[in-house]
Nucleic acid binder design. Structure first.
Lengths: 214, 214, 214, 214
DNA sequence: GATGAATGAGTATTCATTCAT
DNA sequence: AATGAATGAATACTCATTCAT
């Protein structure tokens, strides 16, 4: 599930002066969009805002992106790629061990800490961003569900939970907690958040048989 | 401000003709807002849309609501009141018993089934609705946290989870699952959803000490 | 030049209950218009404002006045009638004497003091009030010009000044000074204002130094 | 903000093509505002009217002016600057001589003749233009008062008049006479107007009979 | 006569997008 | 490729006025 975006290592060659300029302009627009969308949401930002924040003329925006939504979509895709890579690495380094889940939570939180703006954009549904975000979280849910199915198959997780419902539940839980925490990281230590998430997930994922509530 | 028309007192009706009409118009606007916001979100709907859908003139909208946001706020407040009432009733009828949590989930899902539009509005963050929705979910989180604290005090729940993190997690989970399910109730039976939610919550709320993951 | 408006002594009969009520409503609307127009000008006041300030329903306004402009016109006409009466009385009581001009100024200032709101409306040109006000001041100018012509004929005033120009000048001067003074009567004592106005007028009207009133 | 196109430096022109275009559009909007405000007043003109009269799209208006009021303010400021320059030149060319006052009146009237629209806007109070106009006339009053104080100090004017009252009176007189005259210049010859104004002012400014200019 | 809810034309203002330079 | 002035459709909101009760 590791995504190889065009961002990664595709162009080893040095860009020409013209190309570099164009690529730089694009990067500045992406950075501006990241900062502004995180702060004010898709509707709170105009294409002029983005251009101005990037230090380019208004028209230049449309030389790089079809429209505002596309900019958001690209930022979201980048973010998902980054997140996937991180989670993949975490699960690889903890493969099979019982620590898979804590490692997952830790990785997610570390990502959130490093990329607050991206997390804010990804996890705070913003009107027309709905389509974008729905995809994102759905993909994430699918991805997580896949992981869980693997665990069920290996006996690590209980089959008592409906996979679809459970993955939605996990995504909703993670998204909200992460967004809440990133908003003000002093609300709880990273360890507290990770521990709580881990325990709730454990509860849902492999409940000791005798703990069944009925 | 009591009106004394020549007909005053003749009719036992509590509302004057004007009042009845005004209240009806307001209701129609609320109903129109409910339907349209659920379908297209705050930004996808204009005040003219709402007025037209309610069968009144554009200006009439502003006789009843300051602006679009206020209409949304009123609908959200109504929804929360309805939801609270439902959840309160459920917890009262299952007081103390182990079935409190399943009853809670059942009530929530029954509510979602009956009020799909309201759930869609409440649980699908829509840009400028962010403020409204943030309040709503925060209140819900606080409410749930309170309930959980009661359970912890009575020994029914473990204190191992951070209350703030856990309540955010629960709210996020419930909101997402409910929104996902309401979108297409054939995705899973109500019972399946309820059972899964209940089990995850149990996991988080009173994990037998020996089940601690490590 | 004394105006006999329908306000004065036309109806010696007592009004019926219904009539009294209607007349009272009208008076309240006039009073509300006076206060509000003086404060915020024609454009700063809505017909709803006037009705609310008068304690009647919005529709009632149109039972008494064709529209906002008519209300202003009526108030202006009343004001002119009141002002004329005052100035006539002053010139009658000082007929022929050299004190005509000071008496005129004194009367004008006394009027302004008593009827600040009316003066504010009359002398502060407000957009669409222009038509109304133009008439008012033109009439006033004509009236003053007439008086001055009498004085010229009697040798009390110099014929060196063009009558039309001079009357415009006087009206402009009086209107502005009065409006300025009424805005904050502490700006100058009534006596100072009156003396200055008198001297300027003297310069234009009867220059012989020995005619100075003191 | 200097633009470096491949053509840069080829033309000796100071403005870039864009700047020239922008400045031209602004000028057209100013001219349109001047004509329309003079004709119908601030409230009688919409921003669309101005744009249409200038031959640009509605939105273009807001690229150059914050709103209608700002356009009016700019026009008023321009007008004041033009007027000041004219009056200054007049007083310089007639320095010290007894002809200062006649020269002043002449200059004012010449200005009015050349800039009828500007005079109409400046001297015809229009509702919300009140603030603008109040400032304008107050500035003018202050300016005139200053001049008069100089004359008093040099013994050229009597101190018998209150400076504040007198300056208000002069402003009111000048504004009204000029507005009246400009409305239809055939009402009186420029010389007649100037002579009358001069004599009234003389009365107020340097009463010694022997100073009468004829 | 009074009420006040409803009307809907009118107006200001924004902003995504285009295009000549 | 970049610029930035211009566009004009979209939309929120106001308010004079009407009319059923």
């Amino acid at each position: 599930m590791v995504v190889r975006t065009s961002l990664a290592g595709v162009a080893p060659a040095r860009e020409s002066a013209g190309e570099r300029s164009r690529a730089q302009t694009r990067e500045r627009l992406l950075a501006a969009g990241l900062a502004l969308f995180a702060e004010r949401g898709l509707h709170g930002v105009t294409s002029h805002d983005v251009a101005a924040h990037a230090g380019v003329a208004a028209g230049t925006f449309y030389l790089h992106f079809k429209d505002k939504r596309e900019l958001l979509r690209v930022i979201a895709a980048e973010t998902i790629a980054l997140l996937r890579e991180r989670l993949d690495r975490a699960s690889r380094s903890a493969r099979g061990s019982r620590e898979g889940v804590p490692a997952f939570s830790e990785a997610l939180l570390a990502f959130a800490e490093e990329h607050q703006d991206r997390v804010r954009i990804l996890f705070s549904r913003d009107g027309d961003a709905a389509a974008v975000e729905a995809d994102v979280l759905s993909e994430l849910a699918a991805s997580i569900a896949e992981t869980r199915r693997g665990r069920i198959a290996s006996g690590a997780s209980s089959a008592a939970l409906d996979p679809d419902v459970a993955s939605q539940a996990l995504v909703g839980m993670l998204a909200r907690v992460v967004a809440w925490w990133v908003e003000d990281p002093r609300r709880a230590s990273r360890e507290t958040v990770a521990r709580t998430l881990t325990r709730i997930q454990l509860g849902g994922t492999h409940p000791p048989p005798e703990a069944a509530e009925e």
